[in-house]
């Protein structure tokens, strides 16, 4: 039995790895909003259980075993969100929080039934792909905006922020799927990014730049 706390760790590592962020103890602690000390203690235990490998300078990496569990959790999370929003009419921001609880309790049989009921959804309400039951993830060939280099041009594919108000705000200034953007400047040490949208340049904090997924166009 894998505890909900383990599942949260694995899920976090999965997100950090797909965002291209080095999974340092600090990054994990920031993501889970707990202390770095308890993170490093738990990571040690998980390394013994062979869910992760931890090397002092490269950070934490998921093993194949860890990744399989992480994908299961991610699927249950995204599927739950879809269910909560589509079938129960729950708001996005609440759906995300509720899904965080549901994801730890769904059995395989319930998952199969949910897939059927929802008509095999490909993405969660935020546009992230729902992994299949066999653990495959459709690759939409997108990268976080934060990983682009200065002068790169790209088109926004999806924005994975959980807060609808934030999404609406971003949309009102033109930051929404299909918008063409250009990276003008990046602050050092994983700092802010300046992107040009039309005639306007916006400085975006790193968290926001990591939630905007783009496909390079030149």
């Amino acid at each position: 039995m894998i505890t909900p706390s383990r599942e949260d760790y694995l899920e976090t590592l999965f997100h950090l790895e797909s965002e291209g962020v080095a999974s340092t103890t600090q990054a994990i602690a920031d993501h889970l909003q707990i202390s770095a000390a308890s993170v490093s203690e738990n990571i040690k235990k998980m390394a013994i259980e062979r869910f992760v490998v931890h090397s002092p300078y490269k950070g934490v990496k998921l093993t194949a075993k860890g990744r399989a569990v992480a994908i299961d959790v991610v699927r249950r999370h995204r599927l739950s969100e879809r269910f909560l929003v589509d079938k129960l009419g729950i708001k996005w921001e609440e759906a995300h929080r509720e899904a965080h609880r549901l994801e730890h309790g769904l059995s395989r049989a319930v998952e199969v039934r949910m897939f059927e009921l929802l008509g095999n959804p490909e993405t969660c309400p935020h546009g992230n792909p729902v992994p299949t039951l066999s653990g495959k993830i459709r690759d939409d060939h997108s990268h976080p905006l934060a990983s682009l280099n200065v002068h790169d041009r790209a088109r926004i594919v999806k924005i994975t922020d959980e807060e609808p108000k934030q999404l609406r705000y971003l949309a009102s200034i033109g930051l929404m799927p299909k918008t063409q953007i250009r990276v003008e400047r990046k602050a050092p040490f994983g700092g802010a990014v300046i992107v040009r949208v039309g005639e306007t340049a916006y400085a975006l904090g790193n968290d926001i730049a990591r939630s905007i997924w783009v496909r390079k166009t030149g």
């Binding site: 909003q33 807060e163 934030q166 705000y169 971003l170 200034i173 802010a192 300046i194 306007t200 340049a201 916006y202 400085a203 975006l204 904090g205 968290d207 926001i208």
Partner: peptide
Amino acid sequence: QSSGMIMEVF
């Protein structure tokens, strides 16, 4: 968590 910065620069 922080709402993050979205700021026009000119």
